[in-house]
Nucleic acid binder design. Sequence first.
DNA 1: ATCTCTATTGTTAGGTT
DNA 2: AAACCTAACAATAGAGA
Lengths: 156, 156
Amino acid sequence: MKVKLAYIANNSVRKATFKRRKKGLLKKTEELRILCGVDACGIIFHPYDPEPEVFPSHIEAQRIISQLRNKSELEQHRRMVSQKDFITQRVTSVNGQIVKQQKEVRHKEMTRIMFQCLNGEGFLHLNMVDLKDLNSLVGQYIIDIDRRIDFLEKNH
Amino acid sequence: MKVKLAYIANNSVRKATFKRRKKGLLKKTEELRILCGVDACGIIFHPYDPEPEVFPSHIEAQRIISQLRNKSELEQHRRMVSQKDFITQRVTSVNGQIVKQQKEVRHKEMTRIMFQCLNGEGFLHLNMVDLKDLNSLVGQYIIDIDRRIDFLEKNH
DNA sequence: ATCTCTATTGTTAGGTT
DNA sequence: AAACCTAACAATAGAGA
């Protein structure tokens, strides 16, 4: 650009430029509306000028603004819903992980108790559920050990 | 204009034109803002497009829109006040005319009554105020007649 | 469809009246 | 200040990649 893009200090030059360019902008806006069949509007105003320029018309601008409001409300709603979905998903996922870890912890605990028993340290403070789990665990160990014995017998 | 100003039916051409011209409009708006130090914003949207174009920025556009709201409220208020002033003035004026006409009517009525009296038809149904006015009127007539007599005597 | 290129058309700065 | 002019400049249509 030849004329550098900066505030025009000279009052009358600035005013003339404003008038010309405002007209140009208005024209371009109208052309875009017609050529592309879109809703477009513009608002221009000098903070200390009595009459803001609203185009293509005040009524049309208001229509477009309220459309924008509705649309952005919808968008916001959509965003919130998708965020809720995301969080729900995370909660479900984390809950799954917790359950899995609880199972692991219990399994380790049972294993510890089993070996404690094998060392003849007895099992104190165990309720019925614990005993059942322990029984099941011991059963699985025995099955495993049987399998290993079979394997050794077949290979020797 | 070489390309006639009408809705572009071809989809891809319209889209391309839209993109190019939207960019142009945005640039022009920004230039106007900077060159002339004015508040200006624009909103463009395809009714069926998810993202409205709001420039120079969403936040700035909102600021300008609310400024516009305030300003037009003020304007409306100003208009209402000036209309009230106008009506008040009209009412005052009309009231003045009514008073003037009432005086004229009263004067004519008194004159009629006076001549009625001169015809010896007597004055009936007159209250004290009417009588006072009538007296004053007669007094003025007499003064007027005296003046005319003086005038005639001097000139003959 | 999107990007780049460029001839053409449109816009605007600055000067004149 | 406003309206008009026009050289200079910028935007864009349309074509080609």
